[in-house]
Design a protein around this nucleic acid. Structure first.
Length: 589
RNA sequence: GCACUUGUAGCUCAAUUGGAUAGAGCACCUGACUACGGAUCAGGAGGUUAGGGGUUCGACUCCCUUCAAGUGCACCA
C-alpha cells in the first residue's frame, strides 16, 4: 500500500502545497459496509486544505484516480476517502506476492533475541498457569523468528530452595521408598504429591502450636517440619552428599515428567539454566554497584539501592549475612545470559505478579550502565483464574496440565467419532488427530486473548470446538485440502483468463495480503493474539467465499483453476499462521 | 494505606493504537443447495464501553475523579 501513501503525499503537495510525512497519513482497511478496500482519513488534512473533510477527500481521490492506474474509483463519506483498487491490482498481488513461496518470509534482520519462558519449580507438576506461560513463550519465539530474528529459547529451572526441600523431606519421611516405577506415577506428579503432603502436615503442626498459645506467625516459624526443611536447605548448600543425592534423584524424576509434558505441549528450548548454578551469581555486580556508588551498605552490612527518586522504594540487594536474595541472583543471571549470547533483546515471560520485580531489575541494570539493559523486556501476562478463585498448588486446587491435555483429547475424540468422517483412519492417525484437535482448541483458547489480561477458565465447561476456536480454523484447512485433492493437479496457466473478481474473492485476496504486516505487528507487540485473530478472520473470509462461489462446479475452467489457486493460497497462510501459534492443521478431520 | 493492572452484549473475547452506525463466537430464535466437507454459511434479538467530568472536528482508547476486581509492597523464590 506504500504506493498509495506516496501518491497521497504528492497529491497533498500538489493540491495544498504542504509537506507532510507518511506517518501523517492514516491508511486503513475499508470497513465492509462501505465500497472500496483502502481508506484514507482526511480530517487531519483540513488544517491546511482549508476545506471541508468531504471536499478535501474528493480532491485527493480525484488526483489519485487520475494519477494511479490501480485506482478504479473512490467515494467520500464524511472524512473518509474510500478507494477502490482495480481487480488487476489484486490479481497482480495474488500472482506476484501471495502465491510465490517466499510470501511472508522475512529476511534475517541481524538481531538476536532471547525468550526465557516456562521456568518451572521442580517440586510439583505443571498446571494451567504454566500452560499459558509455555504457549505464550513458544508462540512469541515462533513469531519473532518469522519476523527475521535469530531466537534463543531458554528455560531457567528453579531447582533449589526451600520448596524443593519440602517435597524431599516429606518423601524421606513418608515415602517408604516410593519411586515413579513402583507407584506408576509420572515423576513430577510424585514429587507434587509429597509437596502437598508436607503442607498438610505442616498445617497440622501450626494448628497444634496455636492451640498452645502461639500466634500464627510464631507457629509458622516454630513448626518442627519447617525447621527441618530449613536445615535440609542448609545441608544442601553445604554440599551434604546424602541430601544432594536425594535432590538429584527426585529432580531427575521431575525432569523426566516435564519432558513428557513439554513434548505434548509441543514446546522446546535451546538452552537450560539452573538456579542451583546461578543462585550464587550476582555478588560481582553488588561489588560493582558499591564501587560506582549506586548501592549503599547499611550498618548491619546489608546492601541496598535507593530508588525513591524513580518513584520506587529502597530495595535490598544483598542480605546482612552476605547471602543472595532473588534480586541478586537475577542481576547475576541477566549478566550471565548476556555474556553467553550477546543478544540485542531479551524477553522474560513471567506472570504479572512480578511486574514490580522486573521494573526494579531493569532499572538497576540501567543504573549500573549496562547498555544491553535497554533490550530487556518483561512479557507480563495475567493469571488464569478458576470460577472458584485462584489456583493453589499447595492446596491441590489446580488444573493439572497433563490432566487438562488428556481431557481435551478426549473431547476431540468424542466429537470426531460423532461426526463419523474418519472411519478410514488408522488407529495411529486417529490418535494423532485427537491430539492435534484437542491441543488446537486449548492453544487457541489461551492464545487468542491479549496476554496481559487475566483469563477465566471453567474446568466444568469443556473448551469449545465450534465458532471462534482452533478447530474451526483447522476445519477450514481440512476442507481446503479436500477440495484441492479432489481437483487433482493445478493448472495455473488456465487461471490467467479469469479477470473479474467476485466480492468474496477480492475480500479474500485483501485479507491474504495482510499476513506479512500481521507478523510484523505481532512481533513488535509480542502478541500471538494478533495472529490468532487474523487467522480467524481469514478463515471466515474463506468460508464465505467457499459458500458463495462454486469451485469444482465452476461455470468454466478459468474460474475453477483460479479458485483452486486462491484456495491453495488461503490454505498455506492458514497453515503458516497456525504454526506461529504452535498449532498443527490436519489434512482431514 | 501506597503502587501497578484490569473493567466492553447474559458468558468468553475483538476493535487497525484517537476515526465511520463499537464487531465476533457461545447460549437463544429463524433460515440454507439431499452436502465441491453442515466442526459450515445467511439472518434476528442482545450495548449509556463500570459511573461522572474534561481535552478533541472526532474518545472504548488520552487526562482528572469515584466505584469494583486482581496483583504487588519479605534479609521467600
Amino acid at each position: 500500500m506504500d504506493f498509495i501513501v506516496a501518491a497521497a503525499l504528492k497529491a497533498i503537495k500538489y493540491l495544498y502545497n504542504t509537506d507532510i510525512t507518511s506517518a501523517d497519513i492514516n491508511l486503513q482497511e475499508t470497513r465492509k459496509e462501505f465500497e472500496g478496500q483502502v481508506t484514507i482519513v482526511t480530517f487531519p488534512f483540513t488544517r491546511f486544505s482549508k476545506k471541508s473533510p468531504e471536499q478535501t477527500g474528493s480532491e485527493i481521490g480525484a488526483y489519485l484516480q487520475n494519477e494511479l492506474s490501480e485506482v478504479a474509483g473512490f467515494n467520500v463519506i464524511k472524512g473518509f476517502l474510500n478507494i477502490s483498487l482495480a481487480d488487476d491490482h489484486w490479481l497482480n498481488q495474488l500472482y506476484t506476492e501471495i502465491l510465490p513461496d517466499d510470501f511472508a518470509v522475512f529476511k534475517p534482520n541481524g538481531q538476536k533475541v532471547m525468550v526465557e519462558y516456562s521456568s518451572p519449580n521442580t517440586n510439583k507438576p505443571l498446571h494451567l498457569g504454566h500452560v499459558r506461560n509455555n504457549l505464550l513463550g513458544f508462540s512469541v519465539a515462533e513469531i519473532l523468528a518469522a519476523a527475521g530474528y535469530e531466537v534463543i529459547k531458554t528455560n531457567l529451572v528453579n531447582d533449589r530452595g526451600i520448596h524443593i526441600c519440602k517435597s524431599m523431606l516429606a518423601w524421606q519421611r513418608w515415602g517408604d521408598g516410593e519411586t515413579p516405577q513402583s507407584s506408576r506415577m509420572k515423576g513430577d506428579h510424585l514429587a507434587g504429591k509429597y509437596y502437598v503432603l508436607f503442607d498438610r502436615e505442616y498445617k497440622i503442626q501450626i494448628e497444634a502450636l496455636k492451640a498452645d498459645g502461639q500466634t500464627e506467625e510464631e507457629a509458622k516459624k516454630n513448626a518442627p517440619l519447617i525447621k527441618e526443611a530449613q536445615q535440609m536447605l542448609q545441608q544442601w548448600e553445604a554440599g551434604d552428599p546424602d541430601v544432594k543425592k536425594l535432590w538429584q534423584t527426585m529432580n531427575t524424576w521431575v525432569y523426566t515428567g516435564f519432558a513428557e509434558t513439554y513434548k505434548k505441549l509441543g514446546v522446546s528450548f535451546d538452552k537450560f539454566y539452573y538456579e542451583s548454578d546461578t543462585y550464587i551469581l550476582g555478588k560481582d555486580i553488588i561489588d560493582e554497584g558499591l564501587e560506582k556508588g549506586i548501592f549503599f551498605r547499611k550498618e548491619d552490612n546489608s546492601v541496598w539501592i535507593d530508588l525513591t527518586a524513580d518513584g520506587l522504594d529502597e530495595k535490598l540487594v544483598l542480605r546482612s549475612d552476605g547471602t543472595s536474595v532473588y534480586m541478586t541472583q537475577d542481576l547475576g543471571t541477566a549478566q550471565l545470559k548476556y555474556n553467553d549470547f550477546h543478544m540485542d533483546k531479551s524477553l522474560y515471560v513471567v506472570g504479572n505478579e512480578q511486574d514490580y520485580h522486573f521494573k526494579v531489575l531493569f532499572l538497576i541494570l540501567q543504573k549500573l550502565g549496562k547498555t544491553w539493559a535497554r533490550g530487556l523486556y518483561h512479557l507480563s501476562y495475567g493469571m488464569v483464574d478458576l470460577p472458584s478463585g485462584k489456583m493453589k498448588s499447595r492446596e491441590g486446587t489446580v488444573v493439572d496440565a497433563d490432566d487438562l491435555m488428556a481431557e481435551m483429547e478426549q473431547t476431540a475424540k468424542e466429537q470426531a467419532l460423532a461426526k463419523g468422517k474418519i472411519d478410514a483412519f488408522s488407529e495411529d492417525e486417529k490418535l494423532h488427530l485427537y491430539h492435534i484437535i484437542g491441543m488446537g482448541a486449548l492453544k487457541y483458547f489461551l492464545l487468542k486473548v491479549d496476554p496481559k489480561k487475566r483469563l477465566l477458565f471453567d474446568p466444568n465447561e469443556s473448551v469449545e470446538l465450534e465458532g471462534h476456536t482452533g478447530p474451526f480454523i483447522q476445519y477450514t484447512h481440512a476442507r481446503i485440502k479436500s477440495v484441492l485433492k479432489k481437483a487433482g493437479a493445478l493448472e495455473k496457466s488456465k487461471a490467467a483468463a479469469y479477470q473479474i473478481l467476485a466480492a468474496e474473492e477480492r475480500d479474500l485476496i485483501v485479507a491474504l495480503t495482510r499476513f506479512p504486516e500481521i507478523i510484523t505487528l505481532a512481533a513488535e507487540a509480542y502478541s500471538p493474539a494478533l495472529v490468532a485473530n487474523y487467522i480467524y478472520e481469514l478463515a471466515k473470509n474463506y468460508n464465505k467465499f467457499y459458500h458463495e462461489n462454486p469451485i469444482l462446479q465452476a461455470a468454466d475452467e478459468p474460474s475453477k483453476q483460479f479458485r483452486l489457486l486462491l484456495s491453495s493460497a488461503a490454505g498455506k497462510v492458514i497453515s503458516k499462521g497456525m504454526k506461529l501459534l504452535g498449532i498443527e492443521v490436519p489434512e482431514r478431520m
